[in-house]
């Protein structure tokens, strides 16, 4: 198990951030390119300092309830939502709001929060956080959960059983994964 983690993870994780220029053609670069297309060059340093979801919402990782997460989200939304941001800061605030939104969506879902917490504990969640790559990020979190711990699998199973298992309910990615699994 641990072997799997080490082999599968660094490629997409912190390593690439620390060596942005020489790094393999990994996610980081791709993403940087995708964002560049619109928002101008965001340097690797900026990405390196990506805050955790907890930092984004301004709450502590320990002992914060669902209500705390929600209240923090509302507080941050009032601060960063482009509708209420000062005219000059709309672009930057929009970016921040999307991050806050992602943080809220992850932390307000118990199973996603627990897999995020596990990733955070291993220090791998600084890996691929960018709103543009939400899907892959989520995917990686899920994969890491499955690979490293039974808890992850159980959490995933629980998540699947709580959210009704209809096709419509699954994310597009999940539907595709399932379809592929069925074909195998």
């Amino acid at each position: 198990m641990p072997n799997l983690t080490t082999t599968s993870f660094p490629a997409a994780s912190g390593g690439a951030f620390r060596r942005p220029a020489a790094g393999p053609p990994s996610r980081t670069l791709l993403r940087a390119r995708a964002t560049t297309a619109r928002q101008g060059v965001r340097t690797a340093e900026q990405q390196q300092q990506q805050p955790t979801f907890y930092e984004l919402l301004g709450i502590s990782a320990e002992g914060t309830s669902f209500e705390d997460v929600r209240a923090a989200y509302r507080r941050m939304a009032r601060k960063y939502h482009p509708d209420v941001s000062p005219p000059g800061a709309a672009g930057e605030h929009t970016r921040r709001f999307i991050q806050v939104q992602e943080a809220y969506e992850t932390l307000s879902d118990p199973s996603r929060r627990s897999s995020y917490d596990r990733a955070l504990a291993r220090g791998v969640c600084r890996l691929a956080f960018s709103p543009a790559s939400r899907h892959h990020h989520q995917e990686q979190e899920e994969m890491s959960g499955w690979r490293t711990s039974w808890e992850g699998q159980i959490a995933e199973l629980k998540k699947r059983s709580t959210v009704k298992d209809s096709e419509e309910n699954l994310s597009w990615g999940a539907r595709m994964r399932r379809r592929r699994a069925e074909q195998l």
């Binding site: 995708a34 482009p82 939104q101 709103p131 543009a132 899907h135």
Partner: peptide, 10 residues
Amino acid sequence: TAVPARRDML
């Protein structure tokens, strides 16, 4: 999805 939003896919 909450607006504003930014998502991508390969």
